[in-house]
Computed example of a mutant assay.
Amino acid sequence: MKKSKLPFLLILITGFLFSCSVLKTAPYDQYSFQKAVEIKIDASHLIEKAENPYQENIIDIQKLKNKIAKIVEYEKYKPNNEITYKMWLLLADENKNLLAGFLKRWEEKNTLSSFFITEAKGQITEAFDLLIQYEGKKDPAVKNQLLELISKN
């Protein structure tokens, strides 16, 4: 009787361990959460200034770009952190329509219309909100929304 249960038990344990390794997600990280909130707020305030010439805000823009570069590098080396890392890469990509893309467009145009600013701010804020929710809860529903956003871009 014991012999017949042993293979079943080994298969069950192996299956459990394999499923756990496939579904690994980086654990909650206070620093990542805090930086995401901080950068969202900084970005939001900066976006509101885009009706003014780019050069008037160059110092704040560079500070924000530096913060983004630092968090991208930080997230890159955390284990089981592919989703958060890809999201930060998306936010930092000047060729996409999120934060870095907004800053690039502002630089090219020098000033942006209030309508464009409002629309872009909504999209950028929504992306940050998803990232912050995911960092705070590691919720599968939010994870799926992030993956959908990443795959669209």
Results as ranks from 00 to 15, higher is better:
M1Y: 02
S21P: 00
E82H: 00
E48N: 05
D60S: 10
K121F: 07
S19M: 10
K70F: 12
L149V: 09
Y31D: 02
I132S: 03
G136Q: 10
F116R: 03
Q34H: 14
K121C: 05
N80I: 00
A141V: 06
L98N: 02
I132E: 03
Y28E: 06
I41D: 11
L46G: 10
M87C: 11
I13E: 11
I83P: 09
K35T: 00
T84I: 13
E135D: 15
Y85M: 03
L103R: 07
I59R: 09
L130V: 00
S113V: 12
H45M: 09
E148P: 03
E119Y: 15
I11K: 14
W106E: 12
K76S: 11
K5T: 05
L146W: 07
S113W: 01
I58R: 09
V72L: 15
E51Y: 14
A141L: 11
G136K: 14
E51A: 04
E119R: 15
L46V: 14
Y77V: 05
E38K: 06
N81C: 05
K70V: 11
K76L: 07
N153I: 06
L99F: 12
G136M: 12
N95M: 06
I68R: 08
L146E: 12
Y54C: 04
L46W: 04
L9W: 05
W88A: 04
I61F: 03
F8I: 07
I117H: 05
D93R: 11
W88G: 06
I39V: 08
K96E: 13
L23W: 06
K137C: 07
I47A: 08
K121M: 12
K109A: 03
C20I: 03
V142Y: 04
L64G: 02
M1K: 12
I68L: 14
Q145E: 11
A50H: 04
G136H: 09
S32P: 08
K76V: 02
K5R: 13
N144D: 03
A141D: 15
P79R: 00
E48L: 00
K76P: 01
P7I: 03
I39M: 13
A26D: 00
E126I: 12
K67I: 11
V37I: 15
L6A: 14
K49S: 15
L131W: 05
A120C: 09
A141Q: 07
E82T: 08
F115H: 07
T111I: 13
N97Q: 14
I71A: 15
T84L: 12
E148L: 01
I39E: 06
Y134Q: 05
K104R: 14
L89N: 12
T84K: 07
G122E: 13
A100H: 15
K65Q: 13
E75L: 11
R105W: 00
I71T: 04
